[in-house]
């Protein structure tokens, strides 16, 4: 059976969708089709991939306009008609389906790393670590960053960490042995206030991490505790509790 594909070809200077038609077999995923086109028709087609098992987070792309992992998207799950494959829109294009995601690693460096106390007893209860364990599933595919309209449309890369790094911050701030309060970092450098919780990050996460409900909103509530709750602040001052 033959199928049609439209693949984004080019670089930042010049790019367009090109049409291809190849024979596909049952069970093929989008990445298989891209590899077949690369092998049979376009040897210079650029695509980033690694594990083909949904665990390395390399083959992120937009298939029919939806941010997905190409290796986890079966052709049979897509509607009839040409399959449109493009690069992630939130990051600068290098070539064809490959984007420069290095901006993400720069954001990661801004987050204060895990900081236990000097006399830490390395013993934890399951009830205290289970919240952060969910966040450890992240494979850093950056699909959540790609779909987030704060980055994708409004281009706030200089003011906003993005969902991936709110998850990372949450995993540290919810760790029972960590000692650092990252609330100010989230508000000032992370720009968590720019997030209007439309849950697109959660919708596209291939690891089913409940990014919005379990990471971003709890962090927004901590920011509200510290900056936007006058009664809590007054109460803290009255009883000389340091709420910050």
């Amino acid at each position: 059976m033959n199928s049609k594909f439209r693949i984004y070809r080019g670089n930042q200077q010049k790019a367009e969708y090109k049409d291809y038609e190849i024979e596909v077999q049952e069970g093929m995923v989008v990445l298989d089709a891209v590899h077949k086109i690369q092998a049979e028709l376009e040897p210079d087609l650029a695509v980033r991939w690694n594990c083909k098992a949904g665990k390395c987070g390399s083959c992120s792309a937009e298939v029919n306009g939806k941010p997905v992992l190409m290796c986890m998207t079966r052709l049979s799950s897509l509607p009839e008609g040409p399959v449109q494959i493009g690069p992630m829109k939130a990051f600068p294009l290098i070539k064809d389906l490959v984007t420069d995601v290095s901006w993400n690693y720069e954001q990661n460096k801004k987050i204060t790393p895990f900081t236990p106390s000097k006399d830490t007893v390395w013993k934890m209860q399951q009830r205290d670590v289970e919240r952060a364990q969910e966040f450890r599933k992240c494979i850093e595919c950056f699909l959540c960053q790609d779909v987030c309209h704060v980055l994708r449309t409004h281009k706030k890369h200089d003011q906003f960490f993005g969902p991936r790094f709110f998850v990372r911050t949450a995993s540290l701030d919810m760790h029972p042995l960590d000692t650092v309060n990252r609330t100010e970092l989230l508000k000032e450098k992370g720009g968590i206030g720019l997030c209007n919780i439309t849950k697109c990050c959660t919708e596209v996460c291939p690891e089913d991490i409940n990014i919005t409900d379990n990471a971003i909103i709890p962090m927004k509530e901590r920011v509200a505790d510290q900056y936007y709750d006058p009664i809590k602040t007054f109460w803290g001052k009255l009883f000389k509790k340091n709420v910050k």
Partner: peptide, 18 residues
């Protein structure tokens, strides 16, 4: 803001969210 995920909206330089 946005209407749906992956659907473009008008770019606003002054977007401030919440």
């Amino acid at each position: 803001d946005p209407l749906a995920c992956g659907v473009e909206e008008p770019y606003r330089k002054k977007y401030k969210g919440e």
